[in-house]
């Protein structure tokens, strides 16, 4: 195994394109090094992207924020601008692992790890975040929900890596939120995660809503039918009940050591109602 830490985007692209064996991108390392230590992966090359200055920061772009792939969750949660614009995404990022993990983990890594239970991903999907991917053929921008294709699998090519994630600007009277269910108060993987992003008009009627679910299917799900239950409503109790039903109906979970099909389906609906209330509260200001 080789470890290399290029300092430029071009240098990283070159390494990836020239690599012959298996390669791993190292950002925060909070998944990759766990897997290395457990001998679950034995890559031939590790490319540490944290020395590439261009992806180490958060930049304001057209009223939204571009979050570099090497930005840690701690840096993100400490950023007032991002927190004010996308509080749900920031909360989701802030839930990944311990304080120690927060100082290292990145939302790009959380996405690329491909876990259906990744905390930041439902929030980013609900937010309509866009991922910038760099490779031999240049860069491309992809909706975040297009990245995961299965447990541990993404649509990112072997010669590509995530450059940044763009959290877009948003209309007035918008709010987002994310909650997950875990058995303890911290340190667990989400048994269910729900991210909701919505916008209201001046009269308090919901005009747009995106609902994304984690840990209830092979990948994070964007559930349009669930968003539709909120649109045109004041997000009252009846709408919330419809939301819960639509969310539970969309769940395709499995039984595993963390939860049962029955539990995940039921709790996804419960959480969706709670998340929608918080998001609505935020939209109302």
């Amino acid at each position: 195994m080789k470890y290399l830490a290029p300092t430029t985007i071009e240098g990283a692209v070159r390494l990836l394109s020239e690599a012959s064996g298996s390669t791993r991108i190292l950002a925060g390392g909070t998944d990759t090094i766990v897997q290395l230590n457990a001998e679950q992966i034995e890559p031939d090359l590790i490319v540490d992207i944290k020395r590439i200055g261009e992806i180490r920061g958060i930049t304001n772009e057209n009223g939204g924020f571009r979050i570099g792939a090497a930005v840690s969750c701690a840096e993100m949660t400490e950023h007032d601008g991002v927190r004010d614009l996308w509080p749900g995404c920031v909360e989701a990022a802030g839930l990944i692992g311990s304080t120690q993990v927060q100082g290292r983990a990145t939302i790009a890594g959380n996405l690329c790890n491909g876990s259906p239970a990744a905390d930041s991903v439902p929030a980013m999907v609900a937010a309509g975040a866009v991922v910038r991917i760099i490779g031999t053929d240049g860069s491309r921008d992809v909706a975040v929900e297009k990245i995961p294709v299965g447990p541990g699998k993404t649509s990112i090519g072997a010669d590509e890596f995530v450059h940044s994630i763009f959290l877009p600007p948003r209309p007035e009277r918008s709010g987002d939120a994310y909650l997950r269910f875990i058995p303890r108060t911290e340190m667990d993987i989400a048994v269910v995660g729900v991210g909701i992003n919505l916008t209201m008009d001046a009269s308090g009627v919901c005009t747009a809503a995106r609902v994304a679910l984690g840990a209830v299917a092979e990948t994070v799900l964007l559930v349009e039918e669930a968003g539709d239950t909120l649109i045109g409503t004041h997000i009252d109790d009846a709408a919330l009940d419809n939301l819960a039903r639509a969310v539970s109906a969309a769940c395709k979970p499995i039984n595993d050591k963390r939860g049962t099909v029955e539990f995940r389906t039921r709790v996804a609906g419960v959480l969706a109602k709670r998340v929608a209330k918080i998001a609505a509260e935020r939209a109302r200001g």
Binding site: R184, E186, M187, D188, K257
Partner: peptide, 9 residues
């Protein structure tokens, strides 16, 4: 991670 002993919180 999945053998869940109580944490401080």
């Amino acid at each position: 991670l999945d053998y869940r002993m109580p944490v401080c919180s």
